[in-house]
């Protein structure tokens, strides 16, 4: 065959074969995907601080460890209320002439997924402390610390965002730790990462490979949810596994009067709508509202908090919680 001894033909054929396949599996699908895609109604492109924060996120290679995609499989449920769809990424476009579109979907989850981090962990104080040194909030974390996003200041001005450091992480005695513009931008990018609800009536894609209900747990009341797991996913980041919080940053739940109060109204209100009345602690975000916690889930969390770490409070029922939550809802219509 001539092809074996004619380099023009041989390499020409190989080139055309490869280029043809590339057009079919890469170029055409890519063009098709980027032209037939539009952001969800109500979602806005990033701007200002959040956009600057995205650049910092990219520059520090956060995508090495953090993905931003909720796959349509059951095990990804914890990262967002619904599977990600193409429209979620429609606002992600080129930022500079010298740079491709950031592909932040990621291929590694050495750290948690960030698709919905703005809802899951909305507290700016938490993020700042965590960025300054992740070990200050999560002991076993292996995330790098980013102290160069902060500076030490003797004289604080009103506009400075001071970061309260917990015990064991205090820095210089006469100076305060202040978040730089970059740190604040990065946090506002993280806060902007929220899964948009689909427009009314649009069914969300289903999660595949649904886990069949575990028969082993039948010893417990089948209707009772795993409070420890719900606590771990929603509360633990700030209030810690031992329920003691972090001195100077997040209040303890162990022995807390609010938690142990026989009347759970205030507790449920704080879980659902957040709280910011005490200066010595960071602001509590409306965790329940953000994560769309159901009454049975709130009940499980409360009962877990009331029966752990030496706490010995009265157990409450789902009906009781449901009643209070309906009452709160009537007061805040957007809930």
């Amino acid at each position: 065959m001539e092809i074996f001894s004619n380099h023009k033909k041989l390499f020409g054929v190989a080139f055309l074969f490869f280029a043809g396949l590339s057009v079919m599996v890469a170029i055409l699908p890519a063009i098709n995907n980027q032209t037939n895609n539009a952001p969800l109604p109500g979602s806005e492109a990033l701007s200002g601080d959040a956009l600057a924060g995205k650049q910092i996120f990219i520059a520090n290679g956060c995508v090495s460890c953090h993905s931003q995609q909720v796959r349509n499989v059951d095990m990804d449920k914890g990262w967002g209320p619904r599977p990600s769809i193409a429209a979620d990424y429609a606002n992600n476009v080129r930022m500079h002439w010298w740079m491709n579109t950031a592909t932040l979907m990621g291929t590694e989850r050495t750290g948690p997924d960030l698709t919905n981090i703005g809802n899951r962990l909305p507290s700016a104080d938490w993020h700042l402390l965590h960025l300054y040194n992740p070990r200050a909030v999560i002991e076993e974390s292996i995330m790098p610390a980013y102290p160069w996003l902060f500076e030490w200041k003797e004289n604080i001005s009103i506009s400075d965002k001071v970061v309260n450091l917990p015990e064991g992480f205090e820095g210089r005695p006469d100076e305060k730790l202040v978040a730089t513009k970059e740190a604040l931008a990065l946090v506002s990018y993280l806060q902007s990462l929220k899964q948009m609800p689909l427009p009314d009536g649009t069914p969300a894609p289903t999660f595949l490979y649904e886990k069949k209900s575990d028969i082993n747990t039948s010893s417990k009341d089948a209707s009772e949810l795993d409070g420890a797991l719900l606590y771990a996913n929603n509360c633990l980041a700030c209030h810690q596994a031992n329920g003691e919080g972090l001195k100077g940053a997040f209040p303890p739940l162990k022995g807390s009067a609010v938690v142990l109060d026989d009347n759970p109204e205030i507790l449920i209100d704080i879980i659902m709508r957040g709280y910011n009345a005490r200066d010595e602690y960071a602001e509590m975000p409306p965790v329940g509202m953000n994560s769309n916690l159901k009454p049975d889930e709130v009940t499980a969390i409360i009962n877990h908090e009331r029966s752990s770490w030496g706490n010995n409070g009265k157990k409450i029922s789902v009906e009781e919680v449901e009643k209070i939550m309906t009452f709160i809802k009537t007061q805040t219509p957007d809930l």
Binding site: A30, N33, Q34, N37, N92, N100
Partner: peptide, 13 residues
């Protein structure tokens, strides 16, 4: 740098 922009780049990636 001119032909692609947006989600298509993930396929290309």
């Amino acid at each position: 740098p001119t032909w692609q922009n947006g989600l298509g780049e993930t396929i290309v990636q």
